[in-house]
Design a binder for these strands. Structure first.
Lengths: 233, 233
DNA sequence: CCTCCAATTTGAGCCAGCGCAAATAGTTGG
DNA sequence: CCAACTATTTGCGCTGGCTCAAATTGGAGG
């Protein structure tokens, strides 16, 4: 491992911000490192919980699968964010699968260490609550969208959220900064890749988006907002 | 207030189980009490967060509304559970509305006290994480169901979950122990009250359920499991 | 017992979006 | 440059479940 995370790095993560220098040193001392290539699996749904990870660089996808193989994407996880929250909430198995979608670099702690950290530094437990509360709230909103909105608006909302979380400014607009296939988008939105493809094609026609293989660029985000939030007449 | 919650009561809630006698005494001393009649609103979406509540008796409904008035039911909250989790995660406004569906009795603490409690007694923060992790996981599952399953199966899963959380054994079967209209069920499942009504009628025909005005009794839970989990051929 | 209101049931028609299928276009490895 | 594969596009027909409408039922209050 050629990479040695410095203390600043920890201080910028959602889980460890605001912790004392002493705590940061302890975190550094007890951490393990992990590198993944795009496509590698970090942890599998149903696996016994052993560690908690924080993403340093790269991007991962958390997904949920049913017995019949149907799966959905819960969220994408980027730098500074927590992956494998089971260790945080004391669950003994992982509720979902986490896969790298880009080459990624993570730092990890065992469940026992995590528990110890939270007991010794309550700010970490409180940060964890804040972060989980945010994710829970996000889920409430997605659940509402899925229950009440048409596919086109859901695709719009999803793209706007992705752009917000991990958009990259480019000459042509805001690009989703990781490989995102039509199928991926469908599994986030709750539809089929066919419908996503048709919708994107229509939008591309109107110059709202520009897309390629596993790539989406939002050229007119405001137009997308209009579609996502327009009043039902 | 004629009701004086004893220490045992706290020890049985999801948030305070496992706390020391000293902590329990502090909790008791700093608690406020609140009674609600069925239909009363405990807190409204968007309101500034002031308190956290624990349900002692009764039942409440947490819901989420969009600008256009479309709403969904996030969950029902029963004895021993937390209502108004915003104070727990440090959110400054409530993400949803909480309404009593039965006469209810709650105990509450101000946000400042909650913060103080979590810093002084880390077990409470850890309990909070566990509880929120459980709810988050529930949401993942509902999101997956909503994305991939047909209405009939979703209604089945929802009824089974409700029966599990707050079912009451009766001569005719397991009764959902609080008023649940077709509309309520529809707002949990992500469909219309018409479709719920048609589905329940069909099931009643087959003796699987028995229902009245705002009442549902599961007469053959195993048949419902079969419907909810049957293989798609 | 009667009135009023909310909850529920049921019918009929329609359509957004799915399922299926087939063609096309990038990508990767050889 | 070719082969094999994966991602994407697009057409077509079908249908689950929504929308609209109207009748019915059960309770609560007087």
């Amino acid at each position: 491992m050629d990479y040695s995370p410095d203390l600043d790095l920890f201080a910028r993560t959602e889980l460890f911000q605001g912790t004392s220098p002493e705590a940061l040193r302890f975190l550094q001392a007890s951490a393990g490192r992990r590198r993944l290539a795009a496509g590698d699996i970090l942890l599998q749904q149903g696996d016994r919980t052993t560690s908690l990870f924080v993403v340093i660089a790269g991007r991962l996808r958390a997904s949920q699968m049913a017995q019949d193989g149907q799966q959905i994407i819960i969220r994408y996880i980027g730098p500074g964010e927590v992956a494998g929250y089971a260790a945080l909430v004391g669950s003994d198995t992982h509720p979902g699968t986490v896969t790298a979608v880009d080459d990624s670099h993570l730092i990890g702690w065992t469940s026992a260490i995590v528990r110890q950290i939270m007991e010794r530094y309550p700010i970490v437990a409180i940060n964890a609550l804040t972060l989980l509360g945010r994710r829970y709230h996000e889920m409430q909103i997605r659940l509402r969208e899925l229950s009440t909105e048409r596919v086109e608006r859901r695709i719009g909302h999803t793209l706007l959220r992705l752009a917000h979380q991990s958009g990259r400014r480019t000459a042509r607009g805001i690009e989703i900064a990781f490989p995102l296939s039509r199928r991926d988008l469908a599994e986030m939105v709750g539809t089929t890749l066919h419908t996503v493809s048709r919708t994107l094609s229509a939008w591309e026609e109107r110059g709202i988006v520009s897309c390629g293989r596993c790539r989406v660029v939002l050229c007119k985000p405001h137009a997308l907002v209009a579609i996502a939030d327009e009043e039902e007449e």
